[in-house]
Design a protein around this nucleic acid. Structure first.
Lengths: 237, 237
DNA sequence: AGTATTTTTTGAACTTGGTTAAATTATAAC
DNA sequence: GTTATAATTTAACCAAGTTCAAAAAATACT
């Protein structure tokens, strides 16, 4: 196993690359605007950083159009994301952190752990494949499984689905959903779906709840029949 | 417990304060030179930083003479040291890090863990009092027990002593001592002590070893009879 | 005491990552 | 197709933390 033993990139560079990676999953080319919004800086800062990243060959940047990661850039992003998701799972499993707490702590630590630390918690967790929100953990080698599930908003009334993944960025949303009974690998029956972008009525465990389109969009599911065995992230506080 | 919930100091400031704390344990006033040597920067950088720290009221600095921590400065230092030593012990106990490996990893993480993390590993470790090298772990409240033991070089031939503490800065020295059988809370019999700053002959477990004054100076012991129960850091890889 | 040496501080300059305001380019609207 | 608007980049500047070289102060030497 060789792999970049010394990560020569600053936390800031790592963060930009990570954000670009996530943004380019949805749309093709990534704009300075989109990046700066996510990073809570100004577009000017992102624009400058794009130049730095382009010099480092981590992105290809066509001025006024946007950027996309190079192969090395993608490797860097996946290494950071690997750290993040391993840390999330570790904090959850080993230290009892809640669903909603892991993201913030992992965010701070992801740039500062050694490969040694990464390997040890990976081993401790028995080489997990998913983080506590159902996101795939990249491999050491820099590969990653595709995101699983389709959005709950696309399910039809009457369907019963299994929760595979939940958007992890907003702690209060996570707490809200958890309180409602939403669990990874748990079942949800779509009782009703109001038209005109109205809320969904869901049956979770024994009780019924209504949920707005926005939050429902953050839950990714598969039809109940086609389940597989989940490998990680299946325990809860 | 209130305690400074947001640590508003940069990693750099925290590091300087920590180094000053350690240096002022031996000599009274701490010089920019001594600090810069430890931090592997230039005296100019330390001199600049002394001014910053003085403005922050973390140190009192008399130009051309030296500096010492204020009470708030000491609190900051002890908080950082608490993080460091808790992390060392956690890495050792929970993740199987070796004696010699914990310092470097803790060094990187100490500035980036939350109070939440600190509390959780503290609890996980059952509120330990000593780190894996026998150094006392400061309390949340910013107090610390005095360093235990007297240097092995001051022991006389014929004495049998218990190892209470070992200097932690040099990993290769730690590996060397570990290979020789030096263990926290282990016994050492001083068989002989050559004059003219010559080496000591030690009996550790069944075998005899010779050890130079320099390394012997890094081992802190107490006379075998006056032992107490050690509360933390007593297990080994 | 007076000079030489060492230590400490200061000043100018650089790097990284940020801001605000102005200029530039793309996109949308009529 | 010109014009208005929105997005992007550039320019000038700030702050933290560093370096190197020079100046200033303390210490040591004889």
């Amino acid at each position: 196993m060789s792999r970049n033993v010394n990560r020569p990139f600053s936390p800031s560079v790592e963060d930009y690359v990570k954000v670009i990676y996530k943004l380019q999953q949805s749309g093709e080319s990534v704009s300075t605007n989109a990046v700066s919004r996510r990073m809570k800086t100004t577009p000017a800062a992102a624009s400058k950083m794009f130049k730095v990243l382009a010099d480092m060959k981590l992105i290809e940047h066509t001025p006024y159009y946007g950027a996309k990661l190079t192969l090395p850039g993608e490797k860097v992003a996946l290494e950071v994301i690997r750290h993040h998701r391993l840390l999330e799972l570790y904090l959850h499993q080993a230290l009892g952190y809640g669903w909603d707490e892991v993201d913030a702590e992992a965010e701070k630590l992801e740039h500062h752990i050694s490969e040694e630390f990464e390997d040890r918690i990976d081993q401790m967790l028995d080489y997990p494949k998913l983080d506590p929100h159902g996101d795939p953990i990249p491999t050491r080698e820099g590969t990653i499984e595709p995101l699983r599930g389709t959005s709950l908003v696309d399910s039809e009334a009457g369907e019963t689905v299994t929760v595979l993944r939940v958007q992890d960025d907003d702690p209060s949303a996570l707490r809200f959903l958890a309180k409602m009974g939403v669990r990874l690998n748990g079942q949800i029956r779509v009782v009703d779906k109001q038209p005109f972008n109205g809320p969904l009525t869901l049956q979770i465990a024994e009780s019924e709840h209504t949920l707005g389109r926005e939050l429902a969009g953050q839950i990714f599911v598969e039809s109940y029949s086609e389940q597989e065995i989940a490998v990680g992230g299946e325990t809860w506080k």
